[in-house]
């Protein structure tokens, strides 16, 4: 199981700024290890952020997103104390969901 994400959500003037730092190898599948074998691709393919059951951002990623991916976006309507959930799914079917409270 992957490490937890670090999520920071801050509300200001009716807009919530969300910053997410995920913990993932984001292996491209193009790299070789020391014995010359290709390291299989292992990367996050989809990311979904939701607030009160509503999707506020969804993304599809390829292996060109950097290791330990960072994501920042803003959405309207969130209040201090609300929860924001972020879920990612990788190409091996691993999933992780984490939640943060809006400050």
């Amino acid at each position: 199981m992957a490490d937890p994400m670090r999520i920071r959500a801050v509300a200001k003037d009716g807009v919530v700024n969300v910053k997410v730092l995920m913990s993932h190898e984001m292996e491209t599948g193009q790299r070789k290890d020391n014995s010359g074998n290709v390291v299989p691709a292992h990367f996050i393919q989809s990311v979904t952020a939701s607030w009160q059951g509503k999707t506020v951002l969804s993304a599809q990623w390829g292996p060109a997103v950097s290791k330990n991916p960072f994501l920042e976006f803003n959405f309207k309507g969130g209040q201090k104390g609300d929860k924001v959930q972020v879920t990612w799914t990788d190409n091996k079917g691993d999933k992780r969901t984490d939640e943060a409270t809006i400050n």
């Binding site: 491209t28 999707t55 951002l57 390829g62 997103v65 950097s66 960072f70 976006f73």
Partner: peptide
């Protein structure tokens, strides 16, 4: 090798602005 790095869907209410890091 594959140009597409990331694709974001922006629902109504979300600002059309995203930041990430790519290789």
């Amino acid at each position: 090798p594959n140009p597409l790095a990331a694709s974001f869907d922006i629902p109504a209410g979300t600002e059309p602005s995203v930041t990430t890091r790519v290789k």
